[in-house]
Design a binder for these strands. Structure first.
Lengths: 190, 190
DNA sequence: TTACAAAACTAACACTTGTTAGTCTAATTT
DNA sequence: AAATTAGACTAACAAGTGTTAGTTTTGTAA
């Protein structure tokens, strides 16, 4: 039980460092020093550096897919589905800033197997997002903007929210939740 | 003269590799191999790995500031200024995809001095972009959306265009140039 | 108090890193 | 033809990498 907490601590600390310096620029000795122990001691809790990265990246990726899966079947208008997704991005960004940053910047450093898994989760998410847009346009709830451009425009903004969130003094979470959907979706509404 | 071309070749190749694997994951031996020579030979043309990175990142950053400087003083409406900026992002993305990707992903690995320089260029660009929005809103050419959110929303989309451009089979450059400004700016127009 | 397990430690491994020194070869200039 | 130079090469460096083996310390349960 305590072991789990210690492991969690390590992963959290790793995410913080990975975010600041990038996966490859953080050595196991750096990570250990930040934890106040020696590098070798880390291996009592984790099995490899790669495992830490995978654990960070995949947990966030799975969370996103999990959320969109709850949104898709709901009997609500497309705009509301999109708003719910945007809100979820904002919330996750606030709660797990380092994890999100790490996912976006360091997924390339996953080993072949984990990278494949990550990319398939990402593809799945994009497909479901695209489908919400497609249905919304078909039902004339949304304007007929080029769909790939819409998907791209909205998702990349959401993906990089964490950059923004770092300067949270500039905009409150509440303002973000009301104004960001407007900025992103107004182009899609008549 | 030939030396310049060779150097340019190295920097171009480096950008390609940095983009694919990240600055730290590309060794001088990797880069040399891609050029068909040995690592030590690179140093006949460049002085350090860091110099290559700086040369890539700063050239793009300066190009962006250079362009916005030509746009700002023009006697045209805010929307047209913004459209011109968006077009420039699209063009640069098409012409220098690897450089752009490299700037966005690897600027953290600049040494202290170059990082400071890069960040100040970036800050300068954002300030000028923000000012265009501010004036446009003051003149009622633009809607009064939260200005920081607008700056962020538009710039991050433009910054990550290169991700998108990689799948250029999906959308033509021409479509991008007409539809992307619409998506990004319609939320700002009545 | 003793016994045991968890988690720290030291020391070392095999390997990779960016970079330099010194040398040889091929092309260009004199 | 001789001299110079650009640009490749080999060999090596000091430092840093992730990880393992074996040992000692610490805290908890008997």
């Amino acid at each position: 039980m305590n072991k789990n907490n210690r492991r969690e601590d390590i992963v959290l600390t790793a995410a913080k460092l990975f975010r600041k310096k990038g996966y490859n620029a953080v050595s196991m000795r750096d990570l250990a020093a930040e934890m106040g122990i020696k590098a070798a001691s880390l291996y009592n809790h984790i099995s490899s550096k790669q495992e830490i990265l995978a654990s960070i990246v995949l947990s966030v990726a799975k969370d996103f897919v999990g959320h969109i899966d709850t949104v898709v079947p709901q009997p609500i208008a497309s705009i509301e589905k999109l708003t719910s997704i945007i809100h979820h991005h904002i919330e996750l960004t606030a709660e797990q800033t380092d994890f999100l940053a790490c996912m976006n910047n360091d997924w390339i450093h996953l080993d072949e197997e984990n990278k494949t898994l990550y990319l398939s989760l990402r593809k799945e998410y994009e497909a479901k997002f695209r489908e919400i847009l497609r249905v919304g346009m078909a039902k004339n709830e949304l304007k007929n903007i080029h769909i790939e451009i819409s998907v791209f425009g909205i998702l990349t903004t959401l993906r990089t929210l964490y950059v923004w969130y770092a300067k949270k003094d500039v905009v409150s979470l509440k303002t973000l939740k009301t104004d960001l959907p407007r900025l992103l979706l107004d182009g899609l509404i008549d």
